[in-house]
Design a binder for these strands. Structure first.
Lengths: 334, 334
DNA sequence: GTGAAAGCGCTAACAG
DNA sequence: CTGTTAGCGCTTTCAC
């Protein structure tokens, strides 16, 4: 119905009976003038429903109040929470985030990155799905700050990952604290950096002789690993720490099929706290949560600081994980 | 290393030995000039690595070449593919997409929407996770186009959903085509619009007396439904069409636990084709794919057409689903 | 064919 | 304390 006319600052100035410059200063809290004048302008702005044109402002300030988020995690398992955190950390400053999924396509990466750079983004956040491979984007000679989240980053760049070792440590100590003595670790492929980190933390608590089984990140592998562990017929584990929730689910299903009670006979803990999996296992899965949204918030904070020219120490930041206790390991609740 | 100086059009003009105006026209293919001049400018631009400042251009053209995507699907199950489609459809035009997840928080909605409007987005795409509830954002009096995807839309707006009836129909006809005679439908809560659509399509093929069981969207419900169907001891189904993949997984697990062979004794089909679930069921699940990326591409196409002032008929558009055949219903391959 | 000049909506000196 | 003026980087009439 209503004519969708965009109110300009000049309209506000006219309405308040002041000059453009005064109106600008009044609204931005800069300059000096009587409180009365300032209020009058503000009220005029409210009355008219004035919203400053961010584009024009950006042109002058040389800051667009936008950041770009590139990811190769087409699934969104990691990216959605991270980006929620980023957006939450930045919206209060009036910063919006461009997002796009470039899969692992270097050409798409170039294309989307260029589009964002043309839009004068104040910074770029790169998000991935594993910490030991990089996105196929060339950031050479970029004049804006970059923050890496959950992806491989060149040295001396600002980057953020979750603390695999700490998270794994908490999980394994929790199982051990339940009185479990014969621990095993069923995890993903050995060439994943996080797998190594988690395995190291496992060995530190469980001892160097505790079995560590590597395989794919799948439920099927969880099944097979249980078969292997139980096949020998010798001593079997009473606590299994899994490299991710899908493996954990496979492990739990396989144990149930063997008549082994979880958590009665064996405690099982997963990693990722992927609610869709963790809630569907029987019993519900105790798992390590990587606090991805917090990671995102921190990424947002950092990119803003960098964009504002504040000093930020380069290097890898490890953000703490937390254990979410459900019924699969006993001793817990929920 | 290299001074990160942004090349301006004036630099290009100087390099090519022409005026600002000519340089602009040369690069945009507008105006009239000798091909020689045009080439000279283009080469100068290339040489210098000129990238036009989208902000300045937008200020004049009154088009920012950006669109905003708001979602309440924090999980990203629907939104990630949709937004991949949107971005893919628009990147070639140099359009980037702002994205944010507002959960179901009206205040966050207002905040993020305002931030995007301030940035002069050329259009808004709203994405949800079910077609019968709306996002908590007020779009009254907006002067830019809006496209609704997978969410409830007011009448006479442009909106896009997947064709539940068609998808369900294909699935059920497929099962029937395999020779299955006693079909059952295990699905989600009756108050979901898509549940009703799918159930209607099911009844059309399977007959009005074929059982339809409603429950939560969970694996546990799939289990329970099988218990109910088999408890009577009378005639049991030989084909089960499930309302989503999680239910289907529960159904398949429950059948296996009862010693019922899938697909030997019973064919099972899911809905969503959520690869993470469909691939993990034993056997892998035949499921209806909603073509969400295509939905996103179409949304991108529509929002662009609208932004360019092209006529677009308002109303609901149903995009076709397709059946992805795996082993859970027999007769198929993979 | 090419260029000078006006201006998109706003901010920031600098005068008054 | 307030207003005039000069741009931000680009496009686009309109003269030459």
């Amino acid at each position: 119905m209503s004519e969708p006319v965009r109110i300009r600052l000049s309209d506000v100035a006219a309405e308040a009976g002041v000059s453009l410059a005064t109106a600008s200063k009044a609204l931005n809290g800069t300059g000096r003038m009587t409180d009365q004048t300032r209020d009058r302008v503000k009220q005029a702005a409210d009355r008219l429903g004035f919203r400053p044109n961010a584009m024009a402002r950006a042109l002058i300030r040389q800051r667009s109040m936008t950041v770009g988020l590139l990811t190769n995690d087409s699934y969104g398992r990691f990216t959605m929470p991270v980006m929620a955190g980023v957006a939450a950390a930045l919206v209060d400053e009036g910063i919006s985030v461009f997002m796009c999924n470039i899969e692992d396509d270097a050409q798409a990466g170039r294309l989307h990155l260029d589009a964002m750079l043309d839009k004068q983004v104040d910074g770029i956040i790169l998000t991935g799905k594993r910490i030991d491979t990089a996105l196929p984007v060339d950031l050479e000679g970029l004049s804006i700050p970059v923050v890496h989240v959950f992806t491989k980053a060149p040295p001396d760049t600002v980057s953020l990952v979750s603390d695999d070792a700490q998270g794994a440590g908490e999980a394994v100590r929790w199982i051990a604290g339940l009185g479990r003595q014969r621990l095993a670790h069923v995890t993903g492929p050995a060439d994943f950096a996080s797998v190594a980190e988690r395995a190291r933390a496992f060995a530190e608590v469980a001892g160097p002789d505790a079995p560590v089984l590597h395989g794919p990140w799948s439920e099927a592998w969880g099944h097979e690993a249980v078969d292997r562990l139980w096949r020998g017929g010798g001593t079997v584990p009473d606590g299994i720490f899994c490299g991710n929730d899908q493996i954990a689910r496979g492990v739990i299903d396989a144990l149930r099929e063997r008549g082994v009670d979880v958590p009665g006979d064996v405690s099982v803990v997963g990693f990722d706290n992927w609610d869709i999996v963790a809630a569907a296992t029987r019993p519900p899965l105790t798992s390590v949560d990587m606090n991805l949204k917090a990671l995102g918030r921190e990424a947002g904070r950092l990119i803003r600081a960098l964009a504002e020219g504040q000093p930020v120490a380069p290097g890898l930041r490890r953000m703490p994980c937390r254990l979410v206790v459900r019924r699969s390991c006993g001793g817990g609740e929920t």
